[in-house]
Design a protein around this nucleic acid. Structure first.
Lengths: 343, 343
DNA sequence: TAATGGAGAACCCACTGCGCC
DNA sequence: TGGCGCAGTGGGTTCTCCATT
């Protein structure tokens, strides 16, 4: 009753293991009669391929890897992440591709995992998230020759493909809108300072200062947690010349900021306008609803999976896909600044 | 420059492959001097174990499996799922255990995956979610002898372990509270009718009818989507003797129901009270905030992982862990029924 | 003599290349 | 030339057995 192997089938049919292998894989080298017989016996014996044995021979693993050097809580807290995962799965499951998920301590452990999984043929490719400014992972993955897609850009990731949205343009659209409303004191509660897209957003804001006549613009880096988002908001709202508008790099932080404003008695949007860089159900159901940059994160996950599948199919390929720039969805958290506070 | 194998190490050190294997696995059979020398050379050569080769020999895979016969969108839409995943990862990553995630069509495909992954030693155990009333998966997994933990209960899952919360008691606490407020017409927007916990909640409500003097109680099954949650709410609120309180089996549906009430001009909680069976950030930030059954889903995920790790370590073990019953957190969506509507 | 260190081969399972009829 | 057998490959584990001390 043990798992049958191709040797068992070969014995039963009275052919060699090689013939069985050819037959089961639909390859030429056996007569149709023999093939039919082999397939029938394999079915009778309830044979299943042994992925480890195939992997040892260098075959495809039928899985992609996602290794996260983030706290595991990220998965539960950030709607962005869950949606991304959902989009990835939707596309991958159509190809019966599994996903190997692992949370590690740091990028050194991440690279180590890439090394092990690649050489053991445990996965066929990787999805990389959170690219940083000088990211050691690109070089490591290139050296391994593993197919991979970076979520983020634009930028040079060596031979790796990428899928990205234009963070700069998105930030400019937010700042332009706030300036048009009359805001001059715009603050930014940013994400992890090492991340490329954080840098890009910070730079876009800074570059707008002269063009739009902004004053006292500031970008406070955080770790994306609601705690630091709240702390940054408290800092900003306690200042003498406090901002009349705050842009948050994630919906969770915007939500936290909204809470702090309430607790400090600062009216939204009367005294301070709030914009979130991520849209989700969260920003829709708050009161007031939060003006947000909206994009289809599930579709984004699907695109990442699609590109990864292409790169796995043809490792020489290098794709660089720019997705639609998130567009501003105005809700009730933004309004012209109160008279006299515009700086 | 290719991946070094234990044969390479054996050659360099001048010992046999067997000796190298023993040394690298910290097992007796080699002298301390030889062991040290082997470890040093292995390190110099940058050796890594090959998980596929080990799996072929029947070793531990270092991963657990989670196979979902649900639409992939579940992952992005239900905070419960993302939090569960987060809790699982937190515990698993502490043991450097990866998770193999796969979304499949139906439970037949799910079972097929269990079969393949088990016999190929691709995972060491499984997490089962969404147990149904006559669930074919238990039997299949038992036959495979694969360690597994069922999320849900109480109930008989054969030799499988389980982790569960008391859905009956939780539902009773909700209904008791609503009845105490004066509600008599209580409706229930349930989840998938085949799920065990759905049945248990439906039964708990039905069993309360006589005790609390309820009238016209009804449980409408849905697929957990916001669309069906909204549709069910529309149906309920359009009835002649419409309910004065509605209990939703998930936060997403409660949110959808709140939206429908707003669109139909039915005041919450003035004309209808709303309770969610799941708590998350969603229920906290709506306006009004939604009275919910609250539990620590991330901790739940951690408990599931913990039990699975125990069962993997000792396959003879069978654990049945009852977690804390979700407790009611009252927010602004519940109030006594308006006079004259109480049935 | 019994314990210890270690060589060597078999084994896990599928795939592939060579060679024979 | 098509069909197929045979032997070897991939990397690690484990069992048998021999040679030391």
């Amino acid at each position: 009753m043990a798992r049958p192997t191709i040797a068992d089938i070969a014995r039963r049919v009275g052919v060699s293991k090689g013939a069985v292998s050819f037959a089961l894989n639909g390859r030429p080298g056996v007569s149709e009669a023999t093939r039919a017989r082999i397939l029938q016996v394999a079915d009778e014996m309830n044979w299943r391929p042994h992925s480890a044995a195939r992997a040892l021979g260098g075959a495809r693993a039928g899985a992609v890897g996602l290794v996260l050097a983030r706290p595991a809580s990220t998965l539960g807290v950030e709607p962005f992440f869950a949606q991304l995962l959902s989009g990835l799965q939707a596309r991958l499951s159509a190809e019966s591709m599994a996903m190997n998920l692992l949370v590690v301590e740091d990028s050194a452990a991440e690279i180590e995992t890439y090394r092990e999984w690649t050489s053991a043929h445990r996965v066929d490719g990787f999805v990389l998230v959170d690219p940083t400014v000088r990211d050691p992972r690109f070089e490591a993955l290139e050296a391994l020759g593993a197919p991979a897609v970076v979520l983020g850009g634009p930028g040079r990731f060596g031979a790796l493909s990428s899928v990205w949205a234009d963070d700069r343009e998105a930030m400019l659209s937010v700042v332009d809108y706030l300036a048009a409303l009359g805001h001059r004191r715009v603050a930014h509660v940013a994400g992890l300072p090492g991340l490329r897209h954080t840098q890009r957003r910070i730079r876009a804001l800074r570059d707008s200062v002269r063009r739009l006549g902004l004053v006292d613009t500031v970008s406070l880096p955080t770790d994306f947690s609601d705690a630091e988002g709240a702390a940054a908001t408290r800092t900003l709202l306690s200042r003498p010349g406090r901002p009349t508008a705050i842009v948050y790099d994630s919906d969770v932080m915007a939500l936290a900021g909204l809470g702090v404003a309430g607790e400090m008695g600062v009216r939204v949007p009367g005294e301070v306008s709030i914009v979130s860089f991520d849209d989700s159900v969260l920003t829709r159901v708050t009161h007031p609803g939060i003006t947000s940059l909206s994009r289809d994160t599930i579709a984004l996950g699907g695109q990442v999976a699609e590109v990864l599948l292409q790169v796995i199919a043809d490792p020489a390929l290098r794709r660089d896909v720019k997705t639609a720039t998130p567009r501003l969805v105005v809700r009730e958290s933004t309004a012209p600044p109160a008279p006299g506070t515009a700086g």
